[in-house]
Simulated scan of single mutants.
Amino acid sequence: MELSGNVSAVVTGAASGLGAATARALASKGVKVAIFDLNAELGEAVAAEIGGVFCEVNVTDDASVDAGFAKARAAHGQERVLVNCAGIAPAAKTVGKNRETGQPKAHDLGLFEKAIAINLVGTFRCIAKAAAGMVTLDPLDEAGARGAIVNTASVAAQDGQIGQAAYAASKGGVLAMTLPVARDLMNDGIRVNTILPGIFETPMMASMPQQVQDSLAAMVPFPKRLGKAEEYAKLALFMLEHDYLNGESVRLDGAIRLGPK
């Protein structure tokens, strides 16, 4: 797909981090970008910066997502691109300890369900609703291409660490559904690919002490640093532009393989 002013896109979780970098990269190509996020202050700022539109969206809520797509399409027309970056990264062991009593404490199922609801179900919800609109579009070429979707999983989907049961399960689901969703949409000309980021510079990472960030960077085989959001965006755009790349999941991690902790 040629990314240009004739294309519109929706990026979830685009008020900061990987999503914001992707929104900026798409806008630099002339693409009309709608930003889906719960953070109105940051989202409006990114939208103003790139000449896009901000839509306050909760990906766990059907009505909120429907309203977001309606606003985005009213401003830019039916999107041909969806990039899913909205997500959370909770940490809790399957069995921990009560801090007050020291007694064993089972994982909070509410936290587990929240991770699944946002990272997995929220991703699929946006995929299904975006694709339902994309199939109504005229093909872009003789092959019948209508649109492209990029999802965000994590290296934790394949080598989740201690305390990442909920996170790994949610991101593992994103990884697992990539191929079947691509197959579901193959006759509609919609490609679906997924990125598995490693340890990246994000707002959450920036809140950690510098010593911790340096320690994490040292774990990466090469280059020995944290990934940059712009590098994620570069791969996302490559996936969108490469017409033969479909049903694929790619690790973007400097060759790191996470140990138990």
Rank of each mutant, 00 (worst) to 15 (best):
F200K: 07
P104E: 00
H76P: 06
E248P: 05
H76E: 09
A67E: 14
P104W: 01
K129H: 11
K32P: 08
Q103S: 06
T12M: 12
N58E: 15
Q211V: 14
I50M: 04
I88C: 12
E44W: 03
D37N: 13
G172N: 07
R191N: 02
M208S: 08
L120C: 07
G17I: 04
A21F: 00
D188E: 15
L240N: 04
N151T: 15
A143H: 08
L42E: 11
D214L: 09
A166N: 13
D61V: 13
Q103M: 07
N39S: 15
E113N: 15
L237S: 00
V212H: 07
M134K: 02
L235V: 14
V59P: 06
L196R: 05
E2N: 11
E248A: 15
R125P: 12
V181K: 08
A131D: 07
T194W: 04
A74S: 15
S28V: 00
A233Q: 09
A89L: 14
A20H: 10
D159A: 03
P221D: 02
R225P: 09
A145T: 03
A145Q: 06
E49M: 09
V65E: 03
P139N: 05
E41A: 15
A233S: 12
L196V: 01
G13L: 03
V121T: 15
V11T: 06
A27F: 02
H107K: 14
L26Q: 02
